[in-house]
């Protein structure tokens, strides 16, 4: 494993790697910068320039996604990269082009993969202004149409049959609930009565069996898609991708975490859940089962608190000094439990 990269060395080391990967000995890298956010991988952006054999100059923006020393999530780089490869070019699912994957740590100190950079921003400030209501609504409609397109894909037809594992017996709910319950157990920071009560409720009242099993992005929300102009240009951050019940993604994107303080009944402060469902059904070809959706909405509290707890645990154990990890538990666990109690419908 090579030494870790930092801002003073990233450009040079990325250039060395890219010269080998592209076969372009004159390749130069500039404007290397670490992108803020991204708690599961470290993300770097660079500009790469080189001349083709015939002399024609090439210039591309590239994104490097590096495994971090400590992460919120145990994710499989190879699976994420395979997803990009399998779905890239699907007209209903905008994605950056995946270019290279490197499983060793010699080049940049840790394994990584490289994608072409797309224009856009995950948090367009104008989207949050009250005057942007119509534009925000348009973006959100696109988001749910794209999510429907993801749910429409049969993973076996795009070469992911050997990459993604279908939940045994179609018990997608049980697999996911066990996974996140284990995550909570493995990152124990103290008793969480509300989250435990939610887990018991979810087990007592399982959802109808998921048919069909489809690709689940796992973290589909504003912040993990890119907006540019009037278009949604890319769906990013597939590190939690798995096969499961497509209601899971819909419920996660409906979560209270991504709603506003002024109109919490609307998604993204603009769209009624019923409208989002209608958009999703149009492109997925599936019908939402509201009972199922409610189960997965309650499940989001378990999954979210498992993520926030993991961050707090990693920080407490000294595995990371990222401030975001330290404050995540403070900021979010209590709110998550408050929302869970409201969604359980148990308050007087």
């Amino acid at each position: 494993m090579g030494s870790p990269v930092d801002s003073s060395t990233f450009a040079d080391r990325a250039a060395t790697y890219l010269r080998g990967a592209t076969g372009a000995p004159d390749l130069e890298v500039s404007n290397a910068r670490k992108i803020i956010g991204g708690a599961s991988r470290h993300t770097w952006s660079v500009d790469a320039r080189w001349n083709e054999d015939g002399g024609s100059p090439q210039e591309h923006g590239l994104i490097f996604r590096l495994d971090p020393p400590s992460s919120l999530l145990e994710s499989n780089r190879g699976t994420e990269y395979s997803l990009y490869r399998a779905l890239y070019g699907n007209p209903g699912i905008p994605l950056p082009e995946p270019l290279f994957i490197e499983d060793g740590g010699d080049a940049l100190g840790m394994p990584f993969f490289v994608m072409r950079r797309l224009e856009g921003t995950p948090w367009p400030l104008e989207l949050f202004l009250p005057a942007s209501q119509e534009r925000r609504q348009s973006f959100l409609r696109q988001m749910f149409r794209i999510l429907g397109s993801i749910a429409a894909v049969d993973h076996r037809t795009v070469g992911l049959g050997d990459v993604l594992v279908a939940p045994p017996g179609d018990d997608a709910w049980a697999v996911e609930l066990e996974r996140w319950e284990k995550t909570l157990h493995d990152h124990d920071l103290g008793p969480m009565p509300v989250t435990r009560a939610v887990i018991r409720e979810l087990r007592r009242n399982p959802p109808p069996r998921a048919t069909p099993i489809r690709i689940v992005h796992g973290d589909y929300r504003v912040g993990n898609v890119l907006f540019s102009g009037d278009a949604l240009t890319a769906v990013l951050d597939w590190e939690m991708c798995h096969l499961g019940d497509p209601h899971e993604d819909l419920a996660w994107s409906f979560a209270r975490n991504w709603r506003s303080g002024t109109t919490p009944e609307k998604i993204g402060n603009a769209l009624d859940p019923a409208e989002a469902i209608a958009e999703w059904e149009t492109t997925s070809g599936l019908c939402v089962n509201l009972e199922c959706l409610r189960w997965w909405q309650l499940f989001t509290h378990v999954k979210a608190n498992a993520i926030w707890t993991t961050a707090a645990y990693e920080f407490s154990q000294g595995k990371t000094h990222e401030l975001m990890f330290g404050t995540m538990g403070w900021l979010l666990i209590g709110s998550q439990e408050k929302w869970a109690l409201e969604d359980l419908g148990v308050l007087r």
């Binding site: 009565p193 506003s260 303080g261 002024t262 209590g334 709110s335 408050k338």
Partner: peptide
């Protein structure tokens, strides 16, 4: 009440 004491979320917008 316990959750409200720990509720520190700032809405996104």
């Amino acid at each position: 009440e316990d959750a409200l004491t720990e509720d520190r979320n700032t809405p996104l917008w």
